[in-house]
Each structure stands twice: as structure tokens, then as C-alpha cells.
Amino acid sequence: MAKRIKAGLIALGIGSAVAFGFFVDVVGRIQSMVNDTETADNPFTPPVEPLYAPTDPPMTVKLFFPPGAGPAGPAAGDVLLTTEDQTIFQSAELANRALQILQKLQEGPASPDMLPALPENTRVEELFISEDGIAIIDFTNTISTNHPGGILNEQATIYSVVNSITYNLPGIQQVKILIGGTEKETLAGHCMLLLPLAMDLSITDVTSPAEPPVQQLLQP
């Protein structure tokens, strides 16, 4: 009888030890999961890389903005976009130059005679340049949700981006705009975004970059 009690106590002790060990292991795992959750963002946050190096030379770019309000405003005249010269840096990566141009567009025109082209709080999420010279730009949803509407405004927003990129960066022939990471039919109900768009200078007051001014041709 005593033997049986002894064996039972031993079994109980072994069982308790195993249970305790299991309990400790589970608690440890849960704690490590909590710690993982707390620090989950840190290992995956991409480092913010500068868009240009300090040694990169500056380059002047033409940025396309809607002309200011008034008699020469967008609804009155035939010119939908006019230009402003700004400076970026000639970074080695074409994508970084494009991002610099988009950053300047987000900041808006320096001249008070022009209007911002992008709606408030619009940011570029991603930019990718394909081998065949198409820049795929993913904007935040705000480019659509904060857009005031109207065909002319919508056209101005889209071609401000398309023209500013393609005019200044000859390596990019077309621009495909994504919104919120997905393909959208239109920006705000009018202008089609399903296909990549090429430069359209007919709505601007500048000539094609392939046609330099006559004065430049006459120079020795």
C-alpha cells in the first residue's frame, strides 16, 4: 500500500514538474510575442535615403502649375498649365530625380501668380520606373478625395505631374498614376488613368523640348 502511495506521489511530482515547465515556456512565449509586437515596426522601417548626394550638381527644371486666378485663370484662357523654373539635383538614380520633381510639385509654386497643382496632403507613396520608360507613381488617396473636381482642374492636376516628369526627364516617356496602391479609372470622375499618359504641351504655354528656340539654333 505504502509502495503504491509512494509511486503515486512520484508520478504526481513528475507531472507537476512537467506542467510547471510547460507553464513557464508558454508564459515566456507570450511575453516574447508581446515584445515582438511592441518592436514590430522598428526592424522593417526603411531607412530614409536622401534623394540626392551632396556632390550632385544642381539642375534647373520646368515645373507645370495652373495659372493663377483672375482674367487669366484656368476657366478663362486656353492655357491650362504654365511653368516655373525650380532647381533640383542631378541624382544618379532617375527615380530620385523624379521624386525630387514631385516633392517640388507638392510644395507648390513659388510664384503667387500660380496655383498648386496637387490637392492638400497629397503624398507620393511609391515611384517605380519601368524599362520602357514609364514612371509608375502611386499617390495617396488624398489626391482624389481632396480634389475639388471639375474637368479642367482634374486635367491640370494630372498633366502637371505628367508634363513636369516627362519634360525634364527624357528617360521617362509616359506616366502611369496609381491612387492608394491601386489602379483607378479616373482621378475624380473625368480624366482616364487606366493607361499611361504621355506629355501634352498643347494645354501649356511652352513648346516641345525637342524643338529648341530659334535663337538657340542661331548661336554659334
Binding site: A69, P74, N153
Partner: peptide
């Protein structure tokens, strides 16, 4: 359609 301009006088 109907247009929109930030300038109310347009």
C-alpha cells in the same frame, strides 16, 4: 458637366 474654379469670380 459643371466646372469649378478656386476663384469665385471665374
Amino acid at each position: 458637366h459643371v466646372g469649378y474654379s478656386a476663384n469665385k469670380t471665374d
